[in-house]
Amino acid sequence: MKALSQKRRHPLAAVALLLMGLLVTGGLYAAASSVNEAQAASAYSASDVEEGNKLFLANCATCHGMNAEGTDAGPSLIGVGAASVDFQVGTGRMPMQMQGPQAQVKPVQFDDEQVQQLSAYVASLGAGPAVPEAEYLDTSLGNSGQGGEIFRVNCAMCHNAAAAGGALTRGKFAPSLEGVEEKHIYEAMVIGPQNMPVFNDSNISPEDKRDVITFLKEIEAQGSPGGAKLGSLGPVSEGLFVWTAGLGIIIAFTIWLTSRPS
């Protein structure tokens, strides 16, 4: 392994790896490992990898190392797969603005093509979860009832039953899932970004992941039947509302009612 990783520094290593990856991909598919489909990026061209490498050196290498081997400031990216890059960069979490309890969502720093190039580069470093296929993101094929059940068992404790987000320890938090792209939801489950656990395909199958996404998109699209959602935060926001707006209106009426007109 050591010899291999040294050779990776060779400019052609990436291309060689990619070719190897392409060859192996088919085999991996056939093997259909019960863990994540550890496919290399079949869709990426050599030039994608090369462009990605440049972008990586310019934007990421400070923390993740020149060869993505990781430093004290950032983890190794070898084997994290294209899905990781697509999620972290595609949601604006990476590059990080500053070190903190967890990476925050920001405006995305790269365009779609650059994200793809970066993904291609990182995917070329070692087998890891790939960007999901469109078939598993198509909510018209999913079952929201089943997705809801899986969501409640596996996700709601952190992300809230209505996907409004929640707190974790020491400044970390599970974000709201409203408005998150289908692709990114899927990728998050596969890669387990930050402190989120990994939900690999043997835990929640790709079809089940699609059900979860279907559920999330359905409750997001339909809104609340009862009117404004008050943040879907549960009884706390309801209590606050009743003490401020509710009692406020009532008190205004009592003052009017007991005052003397001119």
């Binding site: 068992v153 404790m157 959602k229 549960g234």
Partner: peptide, 22 residues
């Protein structure tokens, strides 16, 4: 204004729990 959206919480089951359980 919605109050207590029970449809969000799902049926009771001893295993799941929602963040913000208050």
């Amino acid at each position: 204004f919605t109050i207590n959206p029970i449809w969000n919480y799902g049926p009771y089951d001893p295993s799941p729990v929602s963040a913000g359980t208050q």
